[in-house]
Amino acid sequence: MSANKTAPTAVDPAQFISAVSHPTRRADAEVLLRMMEEVSGEPAVMWGPTIVGFGSYHYKYESGREGDASAIGFSPRAANLALYGLTIAPTAGPLLEKLGKCKRGASCLYVNKLADVDLDVLARLARDGYRYMTGVVHHSS
C-alpha cells in the first residue's frame, strides 16, 4: 500500500539537527534549515529518521507506484550533506556549474561542507527546485 517508506514524522527537525555529532555538519544543517525554510516558505518536517524536508509533492509512475515526497530537503550524513530536489529544475544545470565542490547522484547532490559551495547559488537551486517540484511537475508516462 505505502509506496514511499519515507514519510513525514512528528520528530522536531531542530532537535534532530542538534543531535548531529559532527560539529561542522551540525552547523551546516542549521544553515540549510534556515535557508530552505526561507526559500520554500514551508516549515521543516522530518521525512523518515534522517531527512529534513520542506513542502511536498505527489508522484505517480507508470508502474502504478505513487506517493508523496518532500519537495526539497537535506540529510546531514556522516560522510557529507545529501541535498534533495535541487538538481531537477530546468534551471539547475547552469547553476550547478557555478555551485562549487559537489558530487551529483541520481537525484541528490552531495556536499562535504557548505564552505565548499556558493550559498547564493545553493539558495537559488533550492528555490527553483521547490518551485518546480510543487508547481509544474509532470512525470512522463
Results as ranks from 00 to 15, higher is better:
Ser70Phe: 01
Ser70Asn: 04
Ser70Lys: 00
Ser70Asp: 01
Ser70Cys: 04
Ser70Pro: 01
Ala71Met: 01
Ala71Pro: 00
Ala71Arg: 01
Ile72Ala: 01
Ile72Leu: 01
Ile72Thr: 04
Ile72Glu: 02
Ile72Met: 02
Ile72Ser: 04
Ile72Lys: 00
Gly73Lys: 02
Gly73Gln: 03
Gly73Asn: 04
Gly73Ala: 02
Gly73Thr: 07
Phe74Ala: 06
Phe74Cys: 03
Phe74Pro: 01
Phe74Asp: 05
Phe74Thr: 06
Phe74Asn: 03
Ser75Ala: 15
Pro76Asp: 02
Pro76Val: 07
Pro76Cys: 04
Arg77Val: 14
Arg77Thr: 14
Arg77Ser: 07
Ala78Leu: 10
Ala78Pro: 00
Ala78His: 13
Ala78Tyr: 07
Ala79Arg: 13
Ala79Met: 11
Ala79Leu: 08
Ala79Ile: 05
Asn80Leu: 09
Leu81Lys: 02
Leu81Asp: 03
Leu81Pro: 04
Ala82Thr: 15
Ala82His: 06
Ala82Tyr: 04
Ala82Asn: 12
Leu83Ala: 03
Leu83Gln: 04
Leu83Asn: 03
Tyr84Gln: 06
Tyr84Arg: 02
Tyr84Ala: 03
Tyr84Cys: 06
Tyr84Asp: 05
Tyr84Asn: 10
Gly85Asp: 07
Gly85Thr: 06
Gly85Ala: 08
Gly85Ile: 05
Gly85Asn: 08
Gly85Lys: 05
Gly85Tyr: 07
Leu86Glu: 02
Leu86Phe: 10
Leu86Asp: 03
Leu86Thr: 13
Leu86Cys: 12
Thr87Gly: 02
Thr87Asn: 06
Ile88Gln: 15
Ile88Leu: 09
Ala89His: 13
Ala89Arg: 05
Ala89Phe: 08
Ala89Leu: 08
Pro90Leu: 10
Pro90Ala: 11
Pro90Cys: 11
Pro90Gln: 13
Thr91His: 05
Thr91Trp: 04
Thr91Asp: 12
Ala92Glu: 13
Gly93Glu: 15
Gly93Pro: 09
Gly93Cys: 01
Gly93Asn: 13
Pro94Leu: 07
Pro94Arg: 12
Leu95Glu: 09
Leu95Asn: 10
Leu95Thr: 08
Leu95Lys: 10
Leu95Met: 13
Leu96Tyr: 10
Leu96Gln: 11
Leu96Arg: 07
Leu96Asn: 11
Glu97Phe: 00
Glu97Leu: 10
Glu97Asp: 15
Glu97Trp: 00
Lys98Gly: 04
Lys98Tyr: 03
Lys98Phe: 01
Leu99Cys: 11
Leu99Pro: 10
Leu99Asp: 12
Gly100His: 05
Gly100Ala: 08
Gly100Lys: 06
Lys101Thr: 14
Lys101Tyr: 00
Lys101Met: 06
Cys102Phe: 10
Lys103Trp: 00
Lys103Gly: 09
Lys103Leu: 03
Lys103Met: 05
Lys103Cys: 00
Arg104Ile: 07
Arg104Asp: 00
Arg104Pro: 00
Arg104Val: 04
Arg104Met: 14
Arg104Thr: 11
Gly105Pro: 05
Gly105Glu: 06
Gly105Phe: 02
Gly105Gln: 07
Ala106Gln: 12
Ala106Arg: 14
Ala106Met: 13
Ser107Trp: 00
Ser107Glu: 03
Cys108Pro: 07
Cys108Ile: 12
Cys108Asn: 14
Cys108Gln: 13
Leu109His: 04
Leu109Gln: 11
Leu109Ile: 06
Leu109Glu: 06
Leu109Asp: 08
Tyr110Glu: 10
Tyr110Gln: 14
Val111Asn: 13
Val111Lys: 10
Val111Gln: 13
Asn112Tyr: 09
Asn112Ser: 14
Lys113Met: 07
Lys113Gln: 15
Leu114Ile: 08
Leu114Gln: 10
Leu114His: 09
